[in-house]
Design a protein around this nucleic acid. Structure first.
Length: 105
DNA sequence: ATAATGACGTCGG
DNA sequence: TCCGACGCCATTA
């Protein structure tokens, strides 16, 4: 397990319920690698973390896990628009504390 | 050494 | 909005 992978997983675990982060966001947040590298980490060791809080930049689900991801989103109260997460409101910047603290216009 | 691949992202059509 | 073409970058063939 590389330190990069550990940092990625750590960030994912810190994403509060009802919030999500894109692969690119995470890559930028940890300050190394890129979206694809993050994707690699998630496909390999993502099973032990709330992977459904990691989505594509456009808010669509990762992998072919739409069904399961959707279930979790609804359960956590993630803001969803059709088949995708509403990034404008559910996107986590890594600073704010909780989901229901968001205002967004 | 070269090409293909992948839980991605952005741009054009 | 949907989709294909490209760009990216590390890994694998």
């Amino acid at each position: 397990m590389e330190p990069f992978a550990e940092r990625v997983l750590e960030v994912v675990e810190r994403i509060p319920p009802g919030m999500v982060m894109s692969y690119g966001d995470i890559a930028e947040y940890v300050g190394e690698g890129g979206p694809r590298q993050v994707g690699k980490v998630m496909s390999t060791w993502g099973g032990g973390v709330p992977w459904w809080r990691v989505v594509h930049a456009d808010g669509t689900a990762a992998g072919g896990l739409l069904d399961r991801a959707m279930a979790h989103w609804l359960e956590e109260g993630t803001v969803v628009r059709g088949e995708r997460v509403d990034m404008r409101r559910a996107r986590w910047d890594g600073a704010t504390r909780s989901a229901d603290f968001q205002q967004r216009r």
